[in-house]
Design a protein around this nucleic acid. Sequence first.
DNA 1: TCGCTAAAGCTACATGTGTAGCGGTAGCAT
DNA 2: ATGCTACCGCTACACATGTAGCTTTAGCGA
Lengths: 208, 208
Amino acid sequence: MASPRPTSELPDDSVTGRTRRPGGRSAAVRRRVLDAALTQLVQHGYDSLSIDVVAERSGVHRTTVYRRWRDVGGLLADVLNEASVDAWRPPDTGSLESDLIAVNQEVHAALTGDPVTVALIAASFRSTQAATALRAFWTDRYDRCTDIVRRAVDRGEIPAGTDARRLLIAATAPLYHELVLLRSAADARLPERVARSTATAARAGAFG
Amino acid sequence: MASPRPTSELPDDSVTGRTRRPGGRSAAVRRRVLDAALTQLVQHGYDSLSIDVVAERSGVHRTTVYRRWRDVGGLLADVLNEASVDAWRPPDTGSLESDLIAVNQEVHAALTGDPVTVALIAASFRSTQAATALRAFWTDRYDRCTDIVRRAVDRGEIPAGTDARRLLIAATAPLYHELVLLRSAADARLPERVARSTATAARAGAFG
DNA sequence: TCGCTAAAGCTACATGTGTAGCGGTAGCAT
DNA sequence: ATGCTACCGCTACACATGTAGCTTTAGCGA
């Protein structure tokens, strides 16, 4: 994570024989641009986020931003890379139900409080870079969360052979559906309710 | 449904005292534009859909299209209105599980086969009109589907007091999540698997 | 420290998206 | 059939988005 080159599909230097320059200036440009993008996003929302605004805020020339990030989606993808703490671990609270509640509260917070997540979802419909970054992020998170299910099986809470991914999708998808697609009125108890339903379902062997 | 005026927030004629003209020419313009939009969408995909392209295809002047529909989202919202068959009824196949399977197969087909649905979802992040139309569409469909749950309760399949909306969201949200947000590889058995899980969960009282 | 060149700055241009205002056409009431 | 005006066509403009090609700056290896 946190690679200095956001446009990831470039061939390796060892292949091209060329030398990259991640040092001083490039790094400074990247930091200034990502800072500006995040600040703009937090202060004025996704709709206000354009390459030109970010360029002006950061003092970096607009053509430079276009060259390195290509579009707003690319910018957001890199912001996510920068922000994603690689040390993230799924909650381990002692029971499947409370683990799922904790996960869902994180998801809920991200979807109602963190502008980056929602902005990246919106951007993913227009930018391949944003879509790819989001997919990678979610794949990583769901993979890590399989531990929750494994532990629940070990404790004998739910049947062996439970499909971890199906369970986790069932636990989280309703939140995304309600908040992102249906845009329902916010309900603070939604994360808990959905988590409890899913835990009950899992105990009944619904994901075997 | 199928109102001749897509931009819905206008005051009623009885309030303004002005007389609308839904007749001949306006109706023809609307039909030609919506036809062109749908054809373009089917033939060349959402990314190719712009007001200018639709205007050219339809032979209607671009400023007219801008005036009446404002943006691509407005266009899609009206296409949805036109296409939504008001007579739609939820499946009634004799059991909760098979009803949910049938619903999910419809959702799956819409998300993998019908470009209008996916396009409208994408547009809903950029256009208030698209977002509003989509919300209205889904609200209507979920409302009608409560019949499925009511019948299941009547048959004694699931506990009385089961929350219909929560059940229906649980049954459908994973499809949207996988296909729209995660963009997973298509799996023809997904609708059935999710429906069965949800039916099992409902029987175990997960949505009480 | 000095040469090479990756990467940033800059100007100019091309295209896409959306609006303002005016004049013309045709739906509808009389 | 005739007048009123809703609605469409048209030109002209404003601004946003993105690219091409060149010049300048500065990172890095020798």
